[in-house]
Simulated assay, not measured.
Amino acid sequence: MPIGVIVNSLAVLIGGFFGAVLGDKIPERLRVALPLTFGAASMGMGIVYIVKMNTLPAVVFALVLGAAIGELIKFEKGIAWCAVRVQKPISRIFKNSGSIKDEKEFIQQFVAILILFSASGTGIFGALKEGMNADHSVLLAKSILDFFTAGIFATGLGYIVSTVAVPQFVIFMTLFFSASAILPMTTPAMVADFTALGGMIMLATGLRISGIKAFPIANMLPGLILVMPISHLWTTFIH
């Protein structure tokens, strides 16, 4: 039973809904300060996972190669295009469509939370872990952060934040049911390098959420697919 996956998706759905409903009722100082805290939390978790790295060259190579692929296929631009198309009908349905009207700022924040909720190293690792040994503790801990993060960002982005629960649920459920086939083929070193690359993306996500640097984090995601095979090949033939 994918308890962690279900709870995490509901946390985003409900948190985003209540955040959009409350909107301007949440004090401005809270809406400004908490995203910085969420960014710091994301960076902190990223650092925790980065230090688990086993093979530095393999992780760096996977990140660079994955980012290059993401740039070539314009992955982040594709997500941004979909986000804008989804936001327009939602704005027509709900009067409160968020306080952020600048399209560039909207896209930057929406892509950041999409990655944070659906494609972070914590979420992906948590879904795989739950699918393998029914341990949902990682996703339950993530759900707490996601609930409040979704609520705060929904005050600016509106009800579209709740829609992130859909791709998140699909991704995590796919990983949950694939875990029994994926994890037996991995080694502790491969999992460590996968976790470390996820940590790098989480670190970049935290910097983006905090408004420090707008890393193209969506374009880095193909690296998560490449890192374990590259790690295995590197340790087998080079290291």
Rank of each mutant, 00 (worst) to 15 (best):
G151V: 09
F153V: 02
M132A: 09
F148I: 02
I152H: 07
V161T: 10
D135S: 13
L140V: 15
V161N: 06
G158K: 11
I160F: 09
I144P: 00
H136R: 13
G156E: 03
V161A: 06
D135Q: 13
H136F: 15
H136L: 05
A134L: 14
L139I: 07
A134G: 03
F153D: 03
D135A: 12
L157T: 06
V161R: 06
L145V: 09
Y159I: 15
T163C: 09
K142D: 06
L140G: 00
S137A: 14
L139F: 10
S143V: 09
F148M: 04
S162R: 07
N133M: 15
G156D: 02
L145P: 00
I144E: 06
T163H: 02
Y159E: 14
H136G: 13
L139H: 00
T149F: 02
K142S: 03
V138E: 04
S143L: 12
I144D: 01
A150S: 14
Y159H: 15
G158D: 05
G158S: 12
S137F: 08
L140T: 09
F147R: 02
T149Q: 05
S143H: 07
E130M: 07
S143M: 10
I144G: 00
S143E: 12
I144W: 03
A154V: 10
D135F: 12
G151A: 11
G158E: 09
A141L: 08
I160V: 15
D146W: 01
L139C: 01
F153T: 01
T163E: 09
N133L: 14
S143W: 09
A154G: 09
T163A: 14
V161I: 12
S162C: 06
Y159Q: 13
F147D: 02
S162P: 00
G156M: 01
H136P: 01
T163P: 05
F148R: 04
F147W: 06
V138I: 11
I144F: 12
I152W: 05
S162K: 06
G151N: 04
E130Q: 12
L140I: 13
D146G: 01
A134C: 08
L157H: 10
A141W: 01
L139Y: 13
T155S: 05
T149A: 08
V138P: 02
V161F: 06
G151C: 04
L139S: 00
L140Y: 08
T149I: 03
A154E: 07
D135T: 05
A141G: 13
S162N: 07
E130A: 07
T155W: 02
